[in-house]
Amino acid sequence: MAELPQAVRGFWVTFATMFKKVVTEQYPEDSHKYPTQPRFHGRHQLNRWADGLEKCVGCELCAWACPADAILVEGASNTDEERFSPGERYGRVYQINYARCIFCGLCIEACPTRALTMTNAFELAEDNRASLIYEKQDLLAPLLAGMQLPPHDMVPGTTEQDYYANRVKGPAAVEGEVQS
């Protein structure tokens, strides 16, 4: 090898690389092949209880924890006619400004009802700043089977304590004994 001209030695590197495994990830075509880690901090989601009521109580602790001041929450009272969450209070306004959010996850740590969690979604680029502000309807988790779109009543015979203790398992199904 030593006596070969320098140029040929150089091309050998190129030639040998042709037989190596390709490291390039074909994003976006093959993006399913390269999932993020489950712990990846992506876009937020506002979760629901098993019957579809919102977990968020509008306590604003996420907004308080946010180092970038990217969250705006305004609470309001549930009424018997219009109930969005178990208990007295729900988040009437919920906005996250993704032009400021740094995905640090402190809001998730602060949430007392596990209403706010993070998904792995990250394709967030937009051509204007206003669309980077996600409203409550953009952040709420989709309705799964058995969930009803709020406003609706709590499962009959339950209190908000049953929800917080995770004893409500669906629109009518309640696990174990329910507090009276």
Partner: peptide
């Protein structure tokens, strides 16, 4: 986020979004 809006650096030293200086065609958070 810093170039999009100033991000968490909401202070006097940082331009609160480069769209104050140049027209931006696409904003990428993160």
């Amino acid at each position: 986020v810093c170039s999009s809006s100033g991000g968490m650096f909401n202070n006097y030293a940082i331009v609160q979004g480069v769209d104050h200086v140049v027209p931006v065609d696409i904003y990428l958070p993160g």
